[in-house]
């Protein structure tokens, strides 16, 4: 019985039944399907592994399942079939009470930013650290630092509605990065940026991968995908149509 448990745990990428983290995988999908209505699949039989420090582009047309896959990764959705292990936790069996702790280890850049319009940029970014119970002084310092990296330090007291679309997007990115997450998920993070800023932002996101953060960027901008030459997973009607490894890496 114990051997069976160990074997299953190894398959799922966890150390043992209580969920010790795997050494390399940030996330594993095992034959995952997600359906909202009976018979209509947003994702179907998806299996993949995301290593720590790996940068992955997720491409595909609208409705291909990119956003659903991202939502499954931070437990905003549960799989209808299959198993997903993220940072050592099995999403399919994760209790509601355990989800917040998992989410605190994952940064997410939402397509619609999800910023609070009546709060300052500083508050919007700092709320992630406040949720983690960091002292106010540390929150201010870390928020200033990340805003400076994104060229927004002078805007920290402004409200999002007084910022341009590109600036709002950078605030959303700052919020996702401020707690140095183990996984960064970005849904069209450069959709509102001009070409020059797009490169800057993508360089910043790519640099987080080089520091050990697993990064998944959902985008339909193929120009960016080809520029960075990273692993690219193309989804089509909820299935993985293509999984192209990073340029120069073994397939």
């Amino acid at each position: 019985m114990r051997e069976r448990t160990r074997s299953l745990a190894r398959r799922l990428g966890v150390g043992h039944a209580e969920g010790v983290e795997p050494r390399t995988a940030a996330a594993n999908f095992f034959h995952v399907s997600k359906s909202y209505d009976a018979g209509t699949y947003a994702l179907q039989d998806v299996s993949l592994e995301l290593a720590r420090g790996e940068f992955v582009f997720l491409t595909g047309s609208s409705g291909a399942g990119k956003t659903t896959l991202l939502k499954l990764l931070f437990a905003a959705e549960r799989p209808s079939e299959g198993q997903i292990v993220v940072l050592g936790r099995n999403i399919a069996r994760l209790g509601d009470g355990a989800i917040p702790a998992l989410r605190r280890r994952i940064g997410v850049v939402f397509q619609d930013f999800k910023l609070l319009p009546n709060r300052s940029v500083e508050h919007n970014v700092g709320m992630v650290l406040e949720v983690m119970g960091r002292p106010a002084k540390e929150v201010r310092a870390r928020v200033f630092s990340i805003l400076k990296q994104l060229g927004l330090q002078h805007r920290r007291h402004h409200h999002p509605l007084s910022l341009s679309g590109g600036e709002q997007q950078r605030v959303a990115i700052a919020r996702a990065l401020v707690n140095e997450p183990e996984i960064l998920l970005a849904d069209e993070p450069t959709g509102n940026l001009d070409p020059e800023l797009t490169v800057d932002i993508m360089d910043l996101i790519a640099s987080t991968a080089s520091r050990g953060t697993a990064v998944v960027v959902a985008t339909h901008e193929l120009g960016i995908v080809s520029r960075y030459g990273k692993r690219t997973i193309r989804l089509e009607q909820g299935r993985i149509a293509e999984d192209v490894p990073a340029a120069g890496s073994a397939a």
Binding site: F74, A76, G97, P100, A101, L102, R103, R104, R105, I106, V108, F110, K114, L115, L116, R119, M127, V128, V131, M132, R175
Partner: peptide, 16 residues
């Protein structure tokens, strides 16, 4: 409710 939704997405517990 918007603030609560965002707090939940960034990992705030229910008690928080």
């Amino acid at each position: 409710r918007d603030e609560l939704e965002i707090l939940s997405l960034v990992g705030a517990s229910r008690s928080f």
